[in-house]
Design a protein around this nucleic acid. Structure first.
Length: 145
DNA sequence: AGTGAGCGT
């Protein structure tokens, strides 16, 4: 009985080692851009009229942001993100141009430039979160089925 | 906070 058991254990362990040998010969599948949403969030967003501006001075206001980016196109909306309770700037903001061409010129003209003594970064903003959460909160979370 | 990478009350 003891020998049969040891044989069974050895037979079960062997195939795992072979699988590793064969797995190295498998060609890795191509990874489309839509493979991982989380990884895509770390990459630069595709061209948009909306711009994400970071590296701002804490003293830079929405008006200053609007007027600085207006030199390179028609700004339809600009906003410095501030803390709701303290009211202080978080050091970044958003600028929306009227057209994609203006947005491109805005990046070319403002990215890496100085604003209020700080080097700012202008890039295309990522699409925002779903603005309309579905009505699926009527029932308590983690509740039983 | 005097904060210093980030994606919005």
């Amino acid at each position: 009985m003891a020998m049969a058991l040891r044989t069974a254990v050895a037979a079960a362990a062997a195939p795992r080692g072979f699988r590793r040998l064969f797995s190295t010969t498998v060609t890795p599948p191509f990874n489309p851009p839509s493979a991982s949403v989380a990884a895509q969030q770390r990459e630069k967003a595709e061209p948009s009229t909306n711009l994400f501006v970071s590296g701002l001075s804490k003293r830079t206001t929405t008006e200053k942001l609007h007027e600085a980016f207006s030199q390179f196109g028609e700004v339809v909306h600009a906003k410095v993100v501030t803390d709701r309770v303290s009211g202080y700037s978080k050091g970044f903001g958003f600028v929306r141009y009227a057209t994609l061409e203006d947005a491109a010129k805005g990046i070319e003209g403002m990215d890496g430039k100085f604003l209020d003594g700080w080097v700012i970064f202008a890039e295309y903003a990522r699409p925002r979160q779903p603005p309309t959460p579905p009505e699926n909160n009527m029932y308590p979370p983690y509740g039983h089925q």
